[in-house]
Simulated assay, not measured.
Amino acid sequence: MADDKNTLDWKRKSREVQYDNPWITVYHDEVINPNGGDGIYGVVHFKNYAIGILPIDENGYTWLVGQKRYPLDKYTWEIPEGGGLRHIDPLESAKRELREEVGLEAREWKEILRSDISNSATDEQCILYTARDLKKVEIDPDETEVLTLLHLPLAEAIAKVDSGEITDSLSVMALLWMDRYMLRNNE
């Protein structure tokens, strides 16, 4: 086993596109692994950022979005979220998603976290925000979305992570970040 982090490099010998659509590209790579052996690697490249928003109103309530998720074939509760094209400011994508999914605009935005979603087979990255000082606007969901909204105390949303009812990674990260933030700041 190599012990110098500089030698722990993967080397790509070749790359072929196996699948491509407007959201992802799937690559098949022929590689040399960090220990010098030949191998293969499948990589899912995401063309968008995953954008998540934790809106918080003046009473400490937030909104969860319920919807049937096709890849999981199940109904999920999650924070407002969606994709943001990489050439567009992620904050603009967050503003669009909050308007589309919840019918809210915010005057105060804070980026709270950037994260790699699943670095074993994808390069998907997420950017999470809090949104405060909210005002209602007309909701405008994407044509593929049939959404249910749940307006609840932030503590109840965090409890849904603890109970396992919320499993969506962006939602888990944002809600646990907020829980930790509230503990640090005695809120």
Rank of each mutant, 00 (worst) to 15 (best):
L54M: 06
I56K: 05
R132K: 15
D140I: 06
I139F: 00
T122R: 12
S118Q: 09
T76E: 15
D116P: 06
E138C: 07
V146M: 12
P71Y: 15
T144D: 14
E111F: 06
P90Y: 04
G82E: 01
L113D: 07
L134N: 03
V65C: 07
Y129C: 06
G103L: 10
K68N: 14
N59E: 11
E108H: 11
G83M: 15
I88G: 04
W63P: 00
A121N: 11
I79D: 00
I112Q: 01
L64N: 00
I127A: 04
C126E: 13
G103K: 09
G60D: 06
L134D: 03
K74D: 05
E108W: 13
K95Q: 11
R86F: 03
W77H: 10
D116I: 14
G84A: 01
I88K: 10
G103R: 07
E124Y: 10
V65Y: 01
W109K: 11
G60E: 00
E105W: 09
E81W: 10
L72R: 14
R96C: 04
D89P: 09
G103H: 08
R132Q: 09
Y70W: 14
E81Y: 13
G60Y: 08
G103T: 10
R114A: 02
L147S: 02
E138A: 12
D133Y: 08
R96G: 00
W109F: 09
D57T: 10
A131R: 03
L113S: 06
K74Q: 15
K135L: 14
T144G: 01
L91P: 01
Y70S: 15
K68I: 12
T144H: 14
D89I: 09
E145L: 15
W63V: 13
K95C: 04
P80R: 08
I79S: 00
I139Q: 14
I56T: 00
Q67I: 09
R132H: 05
R99M: 06
N59W: 08
R69V: 15
I139G: 04
I112H: 02
A106C: 01
A131N: 04
I56F: 02
R132P: 02
L85H: 13
D123C: 10
K74A: 07
W109T: 05
L98P: 07
Y75M: 12
L64P: 01
P90G: 03
V65A: 07
L147C: 01
P141D: 01
L72K: 13
Q67N: 15
I127N: 06
V102T: 05
W63N: 05
Y61L: 13
G84S: 03
G60I: 14
R86E: 05
Y129D: 04
L113W: 04
L134I: 12
S120P: 00
D89L: 08
P141V: 08
R132V: 06
G83P: 05
R132D: 01
Q67W: 15
L147D: 00
R69T: 11
E105I: 12
V102K: 03
T130K: 13
E138N: 13
D73I: 13
E78S: 14
L104A: 02
W77T: 11
E124F: 10
I127W: 02
S93Q: 02
Y75N: 12
I56A: 00
L85M: 14
S115D: 08
E92Q: 11
H87A: 09
V102W: 01
L98H: 03
L54N: 02
V146L: 12
I117A: 00
I79A: 01
P55S: 03
W77N: 07
K135R: 12
E78I: 11
L134F: 04
E145I: 08
K136W: 11
L91R: 09
P90F: 07
